[in-house]
């Protein structure tokens, strides 16, 4: 069983989406032990004992993560289907490069497809989040994390 099926079918964490079957679209991106993976290209059993963070765990209760906030402020989503994967990718992107250029953001989205936005407002959102998060590391690695063994 793939990790994405485990998250969606076994744990009911349906915020992580499936958009393709060839590891191209990035709708299924989750964070595994602190780095993003396409959960359609990882067996659930390979994640045994790992810490998985999904979109459900990003906001702290009703308090949105700054990246979610930035997507909201900048119209970074339309149909919302790619959004979970985009946001998970974007969060890691800024962890690795807190001050990306617009070109770096675009390059960093190579593994995430969006059909609605033409990417422009996604790029804008991530750049806005970078500015907002500058010096304010967001330490909310709580809630919504799935630990599992089998």
């Amino acid at each position: 069983m793939l990790l994405v099926h485990f998250l969606r079918e076994e744990l009911g964490l349906t915020g992580t989406k499936i958009g393709c079957d060839t590891s191209q679209c990035g709708a299924c991106v989750v964070s595994m032990n602190g780095s993003t993976v396409k959960s359609c290209t990882c067996l659930a059993v390979q994640a045994d004992g790992a810490e998985i963070a999904t979109i459900e765990g990003l906001a702290n209760g009703s308090e949105l993560h700054p990246m979610q906030e930035a997507f909201w402020d900048n119209h970074g989503l339309q149909c919302g289907y790619c959004t979970a994967g985009m946001i998970m990718t974007a969060v890691e992107m800024l962890e690795r490069n807190p001050h990306p250029s617009s070109d770096e953001v675009r390059a960093g989205l190579e593994g995430n497809l969006c059909r609605c936005t033409g990417y422009q407002n996604i790029v804008k959102s991530i750049l806005a989040a970078a500015e907002k998060m500058d010096g304010h590391a967001h330490n909310d690695e709580t809630g919504g994390h799935a630990h599992h063994d089998h």
Binding site: I55, L64, Q68, F71, W72, A84
Partner: peptide, 16 residues
Amino acid sequence: IRRREDPRLMTGQADY
């Protein structure tokens, strides 16, 4: 103004 549908879409709470 910001979209009113976004919160559920951004948090995994939407039901596709």
